[in-house]
């Protein structure tokens, strides 16, 4: 049974489509990285999973239960680190944890949890005086209460320094070893690749790729990144390049002059030929072995191109 099933999920706000027929599954016991730039719809998806918002269409099942009708049962077995959330200024870390422990009816010890996230020394200080990183650690500790079967971490590295981010990944691994499924959203590839079994890349409310980290790496090592500096670019040309057989993705980077970033698995000349055929002047081009990060860039870069 999957830990999370998102089935044809659509969410619109008036005319704006935040999610468009999104479908994917997270297997039980895996660490799933939910990757996408800001505004891609990651938080919207998580908000539906937790029943903070209601879908326009489609279904979400969490731990085998309907996300809307059994939200309380789901949240009893889920630990959540919400995105960019404020703590309660006048309550201490201990009181925050006591509240979560009481709410979940668990037998956890606030000190043990705060020690795990490295906040034990601030246990009796009011959260109002915490730095962003400390608040984030506190929220993580609250998410760990009650040994949840599913951990949902929305941009957990926000406000953490590299050391903190590493400790956070360490906790994700420990929780996963314990048997928890971890659903982890981020807009930075390097944070998920180190810890995730599989990665889903979201762009403009649609899943553009779901694969294991190895799978993504393989798809990259076969290909190359072609950077072409051109005098101008328009939507038609971009679409034409994208539809070339050897091109897995293409995006525009920069404006003056625009650069076309293309993932190619075969002939680069086809790309250059296509551009020249359209009367676009090529000023320069280079190729590099693509990094995982660049795959992400090309997957997630905005589709819209400003016509010049």
């Amino acid at each position: 049974m999957p830990a999370l099933t998102v089935d044809n999920l659509t969410k619109s706000y008036g005319q704006t489509l935040a999610l468009s027929e999104l479908s994917f599954e997270v297997e039980e016991g895996e660490v799933f990285g939910f990757l996408g730039p800001n505004g891609a719809g990651k938080s919207t998806t998580i908000n539906v999973v937790l029943d903070f918002i209601r879908p326009t269409a489609g279904q979400v099942e969490v731990l085998g239960m309907n996300a809307q009708t059994h939200s309380r049962d789901i949240r009893a077995r889920t630990g959540v680190l919400p995105e960019g959330v404020e703590t309660y200024d006048r309550l201490t870390a201990r009181e925050h944890l006591e509240f979560a422990i009481e709410s979940k009816g668990s037998m956890d010890d606030p000190e043990t949890l705060l020690e795990r996230v490295g906040l034990l020394d601030a246990i009796d200080r009011k959260a109002g005086g915490y730095s962003k990183g400390m608040s984030q650690r506190l929220m993580l500790a609250m998410a760990l209460v009650g040994e949840p079967d599913l951990l949902i971490l929305d941009e957990p590295s926000t406000g953490l320094d590299p050391n903190g981010a590493r400790e956070m990944r360490e906790i994700v691994r420990e929780e996963n070893d314990r048997g928890a499924t971890v659903f982890f959203s981020s807009h930075v590839m390097e944070q998920v690749e180190a810890v995730c079994d599989r990665v889903g890349i979201l762009r403009d409310g649609e899943m553009v790729a779901v694969d294991s980290v190895e799978g993504l790496r393989d798809s990259v090592s076969e290909g190359e990144t072609l950077r072409v500096t051109v005098d101008r670019i328009d939507d038609d040309a971009l679409q034409a390049v994208r539809s070339l057989p050897d091109v897995s993705n293409a995006a525009v980077d920069g404006e003056n002059p625009p650069q076309l970033v293309v993932q190619v698995e075969g002939s680069k000349t086809a790309v250059l030929g296509e551009l020249e055929e359209r009367g676009i002047e090529i000023e320069d081009f280079s190729t590099t072995e693509a990094s995982l990060d660049e795959v992400f860039q090309t997957y997630t870069a905005s589709r819209e191109v400003q016509a010049q």
């Binding site: 937790l50 903070f52 939200s71 949240r75 919400p82 959330v85 979940k104 929220m139």
Partner: peptide, 9 residues
């Protein structure tokens, strides 16, 4: 979201 991440209605 902190309140409602916990099992409260």
């Amino acid at each position: 979201k902190v309140l409602l991440s916990l099992p409260h209605s």
